[in-house]
Design a binder for these strands. Structure first.
Lengths: 232, 232
DNA sequence: AAAAAGAATTATGAATTCAAAATGCATGTC
DNA sequence: GACATGCATTTTGAATTCATAATTCTTTTT
């Protein structure tokens, strides 16, 4: 194989372990939905896609299995994990607890600049809603939640949240598909931003917790209504 | 190498991926303190110890790094992660939130048998305290927390908690070294067990949350007092 | 004798090779 | 025609080999 690093064009200086890069690339493929839940992973296909040998790819797969993104089945490869409705009903209360904690800590620890940024993003969110720009809304929404987690100044919380959030990533896009829920979500975000700005930790905690749980209700309602494509 | 599986004596039937077994063994070594925090991992040493080649060992190491138990440093191996006091101050509020949630869900979902078992373990805990049997106390303590997590009937919560708990495993043994704190912990456990038995979800949540945070206070106090062996 | 430079050794990163299991396909049997 | 059996192919598991980076130990120079 000529180019051992088909991922980044870096020279041979300071490269951060091929397996880790492959893991990142593979994680992105899964989160972007290019590899759908339930899909079987073909080692050969991916090694050709990434331009690496099987060794780093297999190491990357082991990492993602520890993160819960794929499942390893001895002697017959791996499949992309798919979240059943039951999984979501398990995961969201946990995410709600984590985001609630993040809100409380952010209210106490965030810099004024961080709060201003969250406030600005919240206004952008409102704008995206006004223009009915769903993809844009989703992006900004993700940014706000990331910003709050970062502002909590708790690296372990951030990491724990990120790992779990990635496991239910696709489901979160399903929320806000009900227009009533969507409208409600925008209001909730405004309240969250306000509570953070005024550093009301308890309110931020409660609001973020309830916000996440509302998301779950909406997702479950949608799934019960139309079983379009099964579990995601 | 003659015996490719120096870990379990299983024949060639139904073996669950060598890398996974190695990961479990290695995880145990770390949790049991045989490999101390900060220690450098020598691949050769471990391959000889486990009787496997470098490939499955390296895959196992990638898994543990995803779990946060070890840190990979490109081109110079891996070291066992060690938790600084700052890390603990980050981790414990997260653990407290998770255990609080577990308590609430356990109060709602546990079977009567599970609650009876938790109650029984709590009495054993009291006995171990009365006999000043610390190792026994630690074991039972762990069992109770595991039982509550299992009784929450939330697989994702259980998994998230287990991953995080393993990262601060050693620090938890440091708690309860203050006799006043130890005595207090026994009382808290009795209250937790009672709240669960009476299915008071809110109380169970609060009690478990506060119990974990008290543990943190105790640990921090001990660390501030005597800087014996640095971070663990 | 201390410091720097360079060679030898060792450890890690990644591809390849070898082995074993699973899958798919064809043939045969009831 | 459905199902089972055996063979060929494919896929995965793990050891080995090769390459490269880091470390250690000399040697040399000041």
């Amino acid at each position: 194989m000529e180019n051992p690093s088909g991922i980044s064009g870096k020279s041979t200086l300071l490269r951060p372990a091929l397996a880790v890069e492959v893991a990142n690339s593979l994680r992105d493929l899964i989160l972007e939905g290019e590899l759908a839940g339930g899909e079987k992973i073909r080692e050969k296909e991916l090694t050709e896609r990434f331009g690496v040998s099987r060794t780093p790819l297999r190491e990357a797969m082991k990492m993602l299995s520890s993160e819960g993104l794929i499942e390893l089945i001895p002697n017959r490869g791996a499949v992309i994990s798919q979240s059943s409705t039951e999984d979501l009903m398990d995961a969201f209360p946990v995410l709600a607890a984590l985001e609630g904690l993040a809100g409380a800590q952010a209210a106490e620890r965030a810099t004024d600049e961080e709060l201003a940024e969250i406030s600005r993003l919240t206004r952008e969110l409102q704008a995206a809603f006004d223009e009915t720009d769903r993809p844009q809304y989703f992006d900004i929404n993700q940014s706000i939640h990331s910003a709050i987690l970062a502002a909590s100044r708790n690296a372990i919380l951030e990491r724990t949240h990120a790992t779990l959030a990635s496991q239910v990533h696709r489901a979160r896009y399903q929320a806000n598909l009900e227009s009533a829920r969507w409208k409600r979500a925008v209001i909730e975000h405004a309240q969250i931003s306000e509570a953070l700005t005024e550093r009301r930790a308890d309110d931020a905690k409660r609001l973020l917790h309830d916000h996440m749980m509302s998301k779950l209700s909406s997702i479950v309602r949608l799934r019960d209504g139309s079983e379009v494509d099964g579990p995601t």
